[in-house]
Design a protein around this nucleic acid. Structure first.
Lengths: 340, 340
DNA sequence: CTGTTAGCGCCTTCAT
DNA sequence: ATGAAGGCGCTAACAG
């Protein structure tokens, strides 16, 4: 009969060195392979053994080294999120949802900032790939052929988001910016607006929405590009400049909610009634739009849903299941409030 | 005489396998150690050799595996940022600055979300430590002794931010929330305000500011806690409730800029003049505060500076230099605008 | 300045 | 259900 193994006693890390599987294995009286299995595929290990291992893990204060684990298994349990920016970004709810879902699956998020114009993308991608992420979530459109090749060659599961590109690298989860523009045109016409002034950033997707709107609106459309960065201030000064320049329009259509809010504030400062004198519409569906004066009509995008779906796709690929579709349209929702 | 090495020709990755140092070494006609040195400490390698290595790297499409590199060198070149949330968070400029500074030094950011009340901290920290980050930037206050011990035992360089804790784990970069409260009290008195109503989230630091204000103000102070999450809507309804309940105050002091903005909107909706009938003050110094009607008085915190200083400290520690001080006070700035 | 060698800590066949 | 052993790709002495 094998002797009953002795009970496990507390035994802090030896001489400052961090405990390794060997330490845990010795203490639990099993081999290192069993430690690995108990931690990563418990279904292969006897219940009693698992318990011994857990005790030994606690006793040693063992924290697995996933650099080593990832090297050995070719699975880093890392997922990279590449976004243009993080300060005041519309993508943040997506990232937050990603982090939460991934954490539950034992994954961690690597954050890569590509810059508002994706000017750092070519620099960031190799840095990311060097960590061998199992998945990459992109919000950028990748035009550089070198970067596309690196991405494809990486073997990582890739998901593009916030758009439905014509030439996706892999699965894309997003919506058609052209459709949003057309939807807004339809909405504007149904409300009887005949002329519109569009205040937009110069970023590609915003311009695609503008073109969609122009194509479908029918009425008179003017527009102004206010740089790459949406702020309240830009909304205020855009409306001020427009009106002071003799501009006239039924509807001010903005490429971002904060711009629209600025327009609202400038209109109020000038004693203009919204929507009586001027209708205003934003984009993004940020929380604050419900609380402006008047409440802002906007286009809501469910960023958290994009994040959740993206993680689903990545986890599917990690589990060997093939992704369901190449293009997932999560749509958009025009939230009609008082301002338009 | 050694024969002149042959020129390097393009040679894509062998049979789908990702190229490794061995592939590059073979192609460049040097040993793997030289590849490693050329890439990580070029000052130790002859110029001509470096060029050969670079050519071979390009030819093979080699991307270093930093899981392996980190394992071998005990330097992951990863820095973890642990923040409560990322959506609409005041910490984002800090993270952005961190990412930028760190990217320049070859580091990447691991993102850990601890939850608004740090309820996920104990779960997130081990996940982070498993990746053996060289540094950790914390915004949470770490009360759990187990987590503190894990953090200390990790050997990672640790920086706490957005506060100057009484019992720092390591270097702290931030400001005194109590001092902000007192500074605001001083400011309010200097403007002649005799009574104040404070609208605040229930998060610890906001409450510390409230206490500092109460302690130094002298006049009458009432307050209302509006939950953990600052929104425009909460500002609006807080002022509405306060006034409808017969509340009277010279100054409405808000723990976040968006709350203050909501107060501004509600005041405008009720035809109250700001600051004539009611003064309003925010906290955070977000960009939009300059563009509200009227422009919002607020307390600006330089989050990007915190990020930059934090990275300095981490890189110092990585280079073996000892950090300069344990507590770095970056201060705060009251931006007096029209609203108060 | 460069090569040789021995791991870093873990996972994963292959046995048993 | 568990153990033994080789190797994942790279770096860091130590030589030369």
């Amino acid at each position: 009969l094998p002797p009953k193994p002795p009970p496990i006693e507390f035994q802090p890390g030896v001489a400052g060195r961090r405990p390794t599987v060997d330490d845990v294995a010795r203490l639990a009286g099993v081999s290192t392979a069993t430690i690995s299995r108990a931690l990563n595929s418990p279904e292969l290990v006897a219940e009693a053994t698992i318990k011994r291992v857990q005790d030994a893990v606690r006793a040693t204060g063992y924290v697995p080294n996933l650099l080593a684990g990832g090297l050995a298994s070719s699975r880093s349990r890392l997922v990279a999120a590449i976004v243009p920016e993080i300060a005041g970004s519309i993508f943040n709810p997506m990232i937050e949802a990603m982090c939460e879902e991934l954490a539950a699956a034992g994954y961690l998020v690597l954050l890569g900032l590509s810059g508002r114009r994706d000017e750092h993308l070519a620099r960031v991608v190799p840095q990311i790939l060097a960590r061998r992420p199992d998945g990459i979530i992109l919000t950028a459109e990748v035009t550089d052929e070198t970067v596309r090749a690196q991405l494809r060659a990486s073997g990582a599961a890739i998901v593009q988001t916030w758009d439905l590109p014509a030439d996706p690298i892999a699965t894309a989860i997003g919506f058609s910016h052209d459709a949003v523009g057309r939807g807004l045109a339809e909405f504007a016409r149904s409300r009887g607006y005949r002329s519109a002034h569009v205040v937009t950033t110069g970023l590609r997707r915003a311009l695609v929405r503008l073109h969609g709107f122009e194509a479908a609106f029918g009425g008179k459309v003017t527009h102004e590009v206010v740089g790459d960065f949406a702020t309240l201030e830009k909304g205020r000064s855009a409306l001020a400049g427009f009106l002071d320049g003799g501009g006239k329009a039924d509807l001010i259509l903005c490429s971002a909610d904060v711009i629209a809010h600025g327009v609202l504030l400038e209109a109020a400062a000038r004693g203009l009634k919204v929507p009586g004198d001027l209708a205003v519409c934003g984009f993004g569906g940020l929380d604050f739009t419900a609380a402006t004066a008047p409440p802002l009509t906007t286009v809501a995008i469910d960023g958290r849903a994009i994040g959740r779906r993206a993680v689903e796709v990545l986890l599917d690929r990690a589990a060997g299941r093939p992704p369901s579709q190449a293009l997932i349209d999560i749509g958009y929702q025009i939230i009609a409030r008082e301002s338009a």
